[in-house]
Simulated assay, not measured.
Amino acid sequence: MKTLLTVLAAVLCISCTKHPVLPSTDIRFVSISDVGGSALFEVRFSSKTDLLSFFKDNTGEGQLGEALICSLDKTPDFVKWQDVVRSVQGEITEVDNAGTVGHVYSASMFAMQATDGGVSSSFVSVEELLVILKERDSIFCKVFTSAYSYGPYYSNVMSIPVSDFILVVKQKRGL
């Protein structure tokens, strides 16, 4: 009985612990360009936050990876990655951290569409992407990262002007 009460008390104490509140992170669009000879686009953006060590800096815990996710859906703001059916996404790498803007990152992005309720996905062709982009003024992106104990984390929203994106898509098509 003593052991049961001790275990129960420990479980109750653990369930009451709170994760630290993680700071919000702003990201700012820098540029978009074609990655020649492939279906990829390079998106550069900046942040005053070191996104590659976000969890280590704020919780002491390691991260599981970082990605930039841009929604192509009609409702562009999303709470979690699984909410996005059509997206442009890619892993991020740091390309500069010496400037006044803080850290500059690059993401080699590709267009995807979730099918079967998110069970599988397929690539969106350049032609389909152009049609989707022409229906919008901007596309909205967030940086995604996660850690085992904290789950997913999303940055604040960054806007990419569709006119910049369409210009790069047309270059890719040779127009």
Results as ranks from 00 to 15, higher is better:
G117K: 03
R86Q: 08
M158L: 04
Y150V: 01
L40C: 01
S31V: 09
L167P: 00
S38E: 01
F41N: 02
L12C: 02
K18P: 05
C16L: 12
L5D: 08
G60T: 07
C13W: 00
E128P: 13
A107E: 10
E135D: 06
A107D: 14
L129I: 03
V30N: 13
L5Y: 14
A114E: 11
T75M: 11
R28C: 04
G36A: 15
R173E: 11
V169N: 13
P20I: 09
L8A: 12
D164W: 08
D73E: 10
H103K: 02
S87N: 12
V21K: 05
Y148N: 02
S159T: 05
F78H: 04
D73A: 07
Y154P: 03
F55Y: 14
E61V: 09
I132P: 02
V11Q: 08
V126N: 15
R136P: 13
T75D: 15
C16Q: 13
K134S: 04
S121G: 13
F41C: 01
E66G: 11
M109C: 11
V21H: 00
D26K: 03
S125E: 12
V35A: 09
L129C: 09
V169Y: 09
H19E: 14
S122G: 03
Q113G: 06
E66T: 09
I139Y: 01
G117D: 07
E127Y: 06
E91S: 10
E135V: 06
Q113K: 06
M1T: 08
I27C: 09
G90E: 08
N156I: 07
I32K: 06
P20E: 13
D50A: 10
F140S: 03
T25N: 11
T25E: 14
E61R: 06
D26F: 00
G117P: 02
Q82L: 12
V168Y: 06
I14H: 07
S38V: 14
N58D: 08
V169R: 06
E94T: 10
